[in-house]
């Protein structure tokens, strides 16, 4: 049965205009660049994959990324979905593929989509090394993917806020750095809604979309942590026009990496036409979640998930604030990250 589904997906990809390249992944002709690594670094990193296993290459070149790429803690949000053998899943903006691999291990047949060729080459090497045969690797602009009603599940993990960003992003040259470039006149929120509509069109009826994103009103933003996408103070929670003015003044570009409150995210998803949205609080962050609790009824399940032994004084203060805020003041509105599960 799985083989039939597998063949159907391959046929579907080809009918949708993708061509299989010599590395075995599917190309649309749309490409771009978004990576934590600069282009030069990425070139050297990919070269290592000819001599070493993916894990060895990471350990040699970007050891500080090993957990981000390989840790099973990163995939924990997938436990909220009931991925079973033969579920068809799309990972939008898969990058190095931590969620794609997680879904494939759970039995899903996974279409991993990203615009950055180097990231896909890494994922392709990992696919081959770990024999993850149910992984289709696709290079495309995620805003343009058209695979009508193919998937049971969709994952948009740390990606929605980057959807309104146009042009290449070499993160180290972008994050908190001046960059004067042209943007379309469209409102970032509208770009996000259009993208969510496209994701919906690619889901089967009753299919589920998982979105992980920072909370606009994350309590840490109020005690000195900078905006996680542009490295500016307060821009995530200030009114958009003010954030835009600050960004233009300091970074010479508009503020486009919109993140949302719980209510704001729910409204955005509903506006894109989904039937139902379940919201979750995530602690300490969706990158490495320790607790994922239902927003409506889960704050009483909040518990200490860390040890204060051996951590910095600053970290102790932050965690103590979180504990008091969540345990005693029930301040769920201020939790660090949000996961939303939307049903088509």
């Amino acid at each position: 049965m799985k083989k039939i589904i597998f063949n159907n997906i391959e046929k579907n990809l080809q009918n949708s205009g993708y061509t299989k390249n010599k590395s075995g992944f599917f190309e649309s002709g749309n490409s771009g660049y978004w990576s934590n690594l600069d282009k030069d670094e990425n070139f050297k990193f990919i070269e290592l994959l000819h001599k070493f296993t993916p894990l060895e290459a990471v350990r040699k070149f970007i050891p500080n990324q090993e957990n981000q790429i390989f840790s099973e803690k990163r995939e924990a949000a997938l436990e909220l979905l009931d991925i079973t053998n033969e579920s068809i899943c799309i990972d939008y903006g898969c990058m190095w593929g931590v969620m794609s691999v997680g879904m494939a291990k759970r039995g899903g047949i996974v279409i991993a989509i990203d615009q950055t060729e180097e990231s896909l080459e890494f994922l392709n090497a990992r696919k081959k090394y770990e024999k993850l045969n149910s992984l289709f690797i696709v290079q495309d602009d995620i805003r343009k993917v058209n695979l009508k009603e193919i998937s049971d599940f969709a994952v948009v993990n740390g990606v929605l806020e980057w959807v309104p960003e146009f042009g290449d992003v070499e993160l180290k040259k972008f994050f908190g750095k001046k960059m004067n470039r042209d943007y379309p006149t469209s409102n970032p929120k509208d770009v996000q809604i259009d993208f969510l509509k496209r994701v919906k069109n690619n889901l089967k009826d009753g299919g589920k979309l998982l979105i992980s994103i920072e909370n606009r009103f994350d309590y840490t933003q109020f005690i000195g942590k900078k905006d996680p996408h542009v490295d500016l103070l307060f821009t995530s929670f200030l009114p958009r026009f003010l954030s835009n003015a600050i960004s233009k003044l300091i970074l010479k570009r508009p503020y486009r990496n919109y993140i949302y409150s719980f209510k704001g995210l729910k409204n955005l998803i509903l506006e894109a036409g989904y039937k139902k949205v379940d919201l979750y609080m995530v602690f300490p962050h969706y990158h490495m979640p320790e607790l994922i609790l239902p927003y409506n009824s889960g704050i009483n399940m909040y518990k200490k998930y860390y040890s204060l032994r051996g951590v910095s004084f600053k970290r102790k203060i932050v965690w103590t604030i979180e504990y008091v805020l969540m345990k005693y003041l029930r301040g769920k509105f201020f939790s660090s990250s949000i996961i939303a599960i939307a049903t088509k």
């Binding site: 607790l291 609790l293 399940m301």
Partner: peptide, 16 residues
């Protein structure tokens, strides 16, 4: 609704 209550804590590789 579901909740994740433990994520590979204390050196374990298990989600609860």
């Amino acid at each position: 609704m579901k909740a994740l209550l433990r994520n590979c804590q204390h050196g374990s590789d298990v989600y609860i």
